[in-house]
Amino acid sequence: MSDALPLATLFASSFLSATLLPGNSEVTLVAMLLSGVSQPWLLIVIATMGNSLGGLTNVILGRFFPRREMTSRGQEKAARWLRRYGAAALLLSWMPVIGDLLCLLAGWMRLSWGPVVAFLCLGKALRYVILALATLQGMTWWH
């Protein structure tokens, strides 16, 4: 059986997980790691690519929002993080809810593309690497 369909499913799940739409990229990745559907490194790369592109979609969308006062405490808190740490705050772009907001605000604040892409992708990749290592280590421990 070809790896194309499972990999496309992982990519789609990872992309959607990085947007405001529902997705279960962690569950999908773990299930695929446990089933041995493909090489772990390939699954990590595909999940990272999908999730990073989803996060960058949020950055792009953020650039379309008009520049005006923030209306919620959450927005203001995320904006303070971005002002304080710059694009490095996007290492946390993998976090539920706050990560989406950080990506949107990075676009809204017009942060430089190079650092945004670098930190966002690094944060997403580290999350999947840690998840994969924990899953594979757990498989070894149980056997």
Rank of each mutant, 00 (worst) to 15 (best):
L82P: 04
F11H: 00
W41Q: 12
L16S: 06
R80F: 14
L20E: 00
L92W: 05
E69N: 05
A89P: 12
L56G: 03
D3I: 11
R80Y: 14
F15S: 00
W113D: 09
L61F: 13
W113M: 08
G86Y: 08
G23H: 08
G23P: 09
F64D: 07
P40C: 10
F64H: 11
L20T: 04
M49Y: 05
L92V: 03
L101Q: 02
A106T: 04
E26M: 13
T135K: 07
R68P: 13
W81N: 06
W113G: 02
V117E: 03
M139Y: 09
G54Y: 07
Y128W: 11
G107R: 11
M32T: 01
S72Q: 11
K77M: 15
L5Q: 00
S35L: 14
Y85E: 10
P22H: 08
I98A: 10
A125E: 10
A47H: 00
A125S: 12
P96R: 08
T57R: 09
Q75E: 14
L120G: 02
A106I: 07
N24H: 15
W141T: 03
V45P: 15
F65T: 11
W141F: 13
R67I: 13
S2Y: 03
G62D: 08
L102I: 05
T57K: 11
G36Y: 02
W108E: 00
P40Y: 05
P6F: 01
S72G: 00
A18G: 07
F119N: 07
L104A: 06
A87C: 09
L29D: 01
G138Y: 10
A31G: 14
A18Y: 04
G74C: 15
K77L: 15
F15D: 03
A4V: 14
A132M: 11
L102T: 00
T9G: 13
L5V: 02
